Amino acid sequence: MLYLKKSDYDIILQHALSGLPNEACGLIAGKVNGDVKYIEKVYLLTNIDESNEHFSMDPKEQLAAIKDMRANNLELLGNFHSHPESPARPSEEDKRLAYDSKANYLILSLMNKNEYVLKAFLINEDKNVIEETINIM
Protein backbone atom coordinates (compact mmCIF):
# COMPACT_ATOMS: atom_id res chain seq x y z
CA MET A 1 0.00 0.00 0.00
CA LEU A 2 1.17 3.49 -0.87
CA TYR A 3 0.17 6.74 0.85
CA LEU A 4 0.31 10.10 -0.92
CA LYS A 5 -0.64 13.46 0.61
CA LYS A 6 -3.30 15.39 -1.32
CA SER A 7 -0.89 18.35 -1.51
CA ASP A 8 1.71 16.13 -3.22
CA TYR A 9 -0.94 14.77 -5.59
CA ASP A 10 -1.77 18.37 -6.50
CA ILE A 11 1.93 19.10 -7.15
CA ILE A 12 2.19 16.07 -9.46
CA LEU A 13 -1.02 17.04 -11.27
CA GLN A 14 0.10 20.65 -11.82
CA HIS A 15 3.51 19.45 -13.08
CA ALA A 16 1.76 17.10 -15.52
CA LEU A 17 -0.65 19.76 -16.75
CA SER A 18 2.11 22.34 -17.18
CA GLY A 19 4.13 19.81 -19.17
CA LEU A 20 1.42 19.29 -21.78
CA PRO A 21 1.42 18.25 -24.54
CA ASN A 22 4.40 16.18 -23.36
CA GLU A 23 4.70 13.58 -20.63
CA ALA A 24 5.86 14.96 -17.30
CA CYS A 25 8.02 12.95 -14.90
CA GLY A 26 9.62 12.89 -11.49
CA LEU A 27 10.71 10.83 -8.51
CA ILE A 28 8.98 9.97 -5.25
CA ALA A 29 10.72 9.45 -1.92
CA GLY A 30 9.64 8.62 1.57
CA LYS A 31 9.62 5.98 4.28
CA VAL A 32 8.82 2.28 4.27
CA ASN A 33 7.16 0.46 7.15
CA GLY A 34 6.69 -3.20 6.24
CA ASP A 35 4.49 -3.32 3.14
CA VAL A 36 3.36 0.27 3.60
CA LYS A 37 5.12 3.13 1.83
CA TYR A 38 4.64 6.78 2.73
CA ILE A 39 5.53 9.34 0.08
CA GLU A 40 7.06 12.30 1.89
CA LYS A 41 8.62 14.21 -0.98
CA VAL A 42 7.97 14.59 -4.69
CA TYR A 43 10.73 15.65 -7.08
CA LEU A 44 9.63 17.30 -10.30
CA LEU A 45 12.07 16.52 -13.10
CA THR A 46 12.41 17.60 -16.71
CA ASN A 47 11.40 15.23 -19.50
CA ILE A 48 14.42 15.80 -21.72
CA ASP A 49 12.75 13.82 -24.53
CA GLU A 50 10.05 16.49 -24.82
CA SER A 51 7.65 13.79 -26.06
CA ASN A 52 4.01 12.95 -25.45
CA GLU A 53 4.75 9.21 -25.78
CA HIS A 54 7.83 8.67 -23.61
CA PHE A 55 10.12 10.34 -21.14
CA SER A 56 13.72 10.47 -20.00
CA MET A 57 14.58 12.21 -16.75
CA ASP A 58 17.30 14.85 -16.70
CA PRO A 59 20.34 13.05 -15.18
CA LYS A 60 21.58 16.15 -13.30
CA GLU A 61 18.16 16.63 -11.73
CA GLN A 62 18.03 12.93 -10.80
CA LEU A 63 21.40 13.16 -9.05
CA ALA A 64 20.34 16.29 -7.16
CA ALA A 65 17.14 14.54 -6.05
CA ILE A 66 19.06 11.47 -4.82
CA LYS A 67 21.46 13.70 -2.86
CA ASP A 68 18.49 15.50 -1.30
CA MET A 69 16.89 12.16 -0.37
CA ARG A 70 20.08 11.04 1.35
CA ALA A 71 20.40 14.34 3.20
CA ASN A 72 16.81 13.99 4.46
CA ASN A 73 16.95 10.25 5.30
CA LEU A 74 14.37 9.39 2.64
CA GLU A 75 14.28 6.31 0.47
CA LEU A 76 13.71 6.38 -3.26
CA LEU A 77 10.28 4.79 -3.61
CA GLY A 78 9.91 5.06 -7.37
CA ASN A 79 8.91 7.47 -10.08
CA PHE A 80 5.90 9.01 -11.71
CA HIS A 81 5.00 10.14 -15.18
CA SER A 82 1.94 11.32 -17.01
CA HIS A 83 0.11 9.85 -19.97
CA PRO A 84 -1.38 12.86 -21.79
CA GLU A 85 -3.49 10.81 -24.19
CA SER A 86 -3.68 7.27 -22.79
CA PRO A 87 -4.94 5.41 -19.70
CA ALA A 88 -3.10 5.12 -16.38
CA ARG A 89 -1.44 1.78 -17.12
CA PRO A 90 2.12 0.88 -18.04
CA SER A 91 2.85 0.90 -21.76
CA GLU A 92 5.07 -1.75 -23.31
CA GLU A 93 7.93 0.77 -23.16
CA ASP A 94 7.18 1.48 -19.48
CA LYS A 95 7.41 -2.25 -18.75
CA ARG A 96 10.57 -2.69 -20.79
CA LEU A 97 12.29 0.18 -18.97
CA ALA A 98 11.17 -0.90 -15.47
CA TYR A 99 14.46 -1.82 -13.84
CA ASP A 100 13.53 -2.17 -10.17
CA SER A 101 10.87 -4.66 -9.07
CA LYS A 102 10.63 -2.92 -5.67
CA ALA A 103 9.97 0.52 -7.13
CA ASN A 104 6.54 2.02 -7.49
CA TYR A 105 5.66 3.33 -10.91
CA LEU A 106 2.94 5.97 -10.70
CA ILE A 107 1.09 6.92 -13.87
CA LEU A 108 -1.26 9.88 -14.11
CA SER A 109 -3.66 9.77 -17.05
CA LEU A 110 -4.75 13.16 -18.36
CA MET A 111 -6.84 11.78 -21.23
CA ASN A 112 -10.19 12.51 -19.57
CA LYS A 113 -10.22 16.21 -18.70
CA ASN A 114 -13.16 15.66 -16.33
CA GLU A 115 -11.48 12.93 -14.31
CA TYR A 116 -7.71 12.55 -14.05
CA VAL A 117 -6.63 9.07 -12.91
CA LEU A 118 -3.53 8.27 -10.85
CA LYS A 119 -2.53 4.63 -10.38
CA ALA A 120 0.49 2.91 -8.85
CA PHE A 121 2.15 -0.24 -10.14
CA LEU A 122 4.88 -2.70 -9.35
CA ILE A 123 6.57 -4.35 -12.33
CA ASN A 124 8.45 -7.55 -11.56
CA GLU A 125 11.50 -9.05 -13.27
CA ASP A 126 9.26 -10.94 -15.72
CA LYS A 127 7.58 -7.61 -16.63
CA ASN A 128 4.31 -8.65 -15.00
CA VAL A 129 2.34 -5.64 -13.77
CA ILE A 130 0.74 -5.57 -10.33
CA GLU A 131 -1.47 -2.62 -9.43
CA GLU A 132 -0.78 -1.34 -5.95
CA THR A 133 -3.34 0.47 -3.83
CA ILE A 134 -2.64 4.17 -3.55
CA ASN A 135 -4.37 6.22 -0.84
CA ILE A 136 -4.49 9.97 -1.29
CA MET A 137 -4.80 11.57 2.15
Rank of each mutant, 00 (worst) to 15 (best):
Ala29Leu: 00
Asn33Lys: 14
Lys127Trp: 07
Lys5Ser: 11
Asn72Met: 03
Glu132Arg: 15
Ala71Lys: 13
Asp94Arg: 02
Lys119Pro: 04
Tyr99Trp: 14
Asn73Gln: 14
Ile39Thr: 09
Asp35Tyr: 12
Asp100Lys: 12
Tyr43Thr: 07
Arg70Asp: 08
Leu45Pro: 05
Glu75Ser: 10
Lys31Ser: 14
Val36Asn: 14
Gly78Val: 06
Lys31Arg: 12
Asn73Cys: 07
Val32Thr: 15
Asn33Trp: 00
Ser82Asn: 02
Val32Arg: 13
His81Ala: 04
Ile66Glu: 06
Lys41Ile: 04
Leu108Cys: 07
Arg70Trp: 00
Asn79Thr: 01
Asn112Ile: 11
Ile130Lys: 14
Asn114Ser: 14
Lys95Arg: 15
Ala24Phe: 03
Asn73His: 15
Leu110Phe: 07
Ser101Ile: 01
Asp35Trp: 09
Leu27Trp: 09
Ile11Leu: 15
Asn112Asp: 15
Met1Arg: 02
Leu74His: 10
Asn72Glu: 11
Ser86Tyr: 09
Leu97Trp: 01
Lys127Arg: 14
Lys119Gly: 06
Asn135Thr: 11
Cys25Gln: 02
Tyr116Val: 04
Glu53Met: 13
Ile130Val: 08
Ile12Asp: 01
Ile11Thr: 15
Ala29Asn: 02
Glu50Pro: 01
Pro21Leu: 07
Tyr99Gly: 10
Lys37Pro: 06
Leu17Met: 06
Leu122Gln: 15
Tyr38Cys: 03
Ala88Glu: 13
Asp68Asn: 14
Asn128Phe: 10
Ala71Trp: 02
Ile66Val: 09
Asn104Leu: 15
Leu97Met: 11
Leu74Met: 15
Asp35Asn: 14
Ala65Ser: 15
Asn128Gly: 04
Asp94Lys: 03
Leu44Ile: 15
Leu108Thr: 08
Leu45Glu: 04
Asn47Glu: 08
Ala88Met: 12
Phe121Gln: 06
Pro87Thr: 11
Asn22Leu: 05
Asn114Val: 10
Ile12Thr: 10
His81Gln: 09
Glu92Val: 11
Leu13His: 03
Val36Leu: 10
Glu131Gly: 05
Glu125Gln: 03
Ile11Pro: 08
Ile48Trp: 00
Tyr3Glu: 04
Glu115Phe: 11
Leu44Arg: 00
Leu77Lys: 00
Leu13Met: 09
Asp58Gln: 00
Lys119Thr: 09
Lys41Gly: 03
Asn33Gln: 10
Ile11Tyr: 09
Asp8Thr: 03
Arg70Met: 04
Val42Cys: 07
Glu92Ala: 11
Asn135Arg: 07
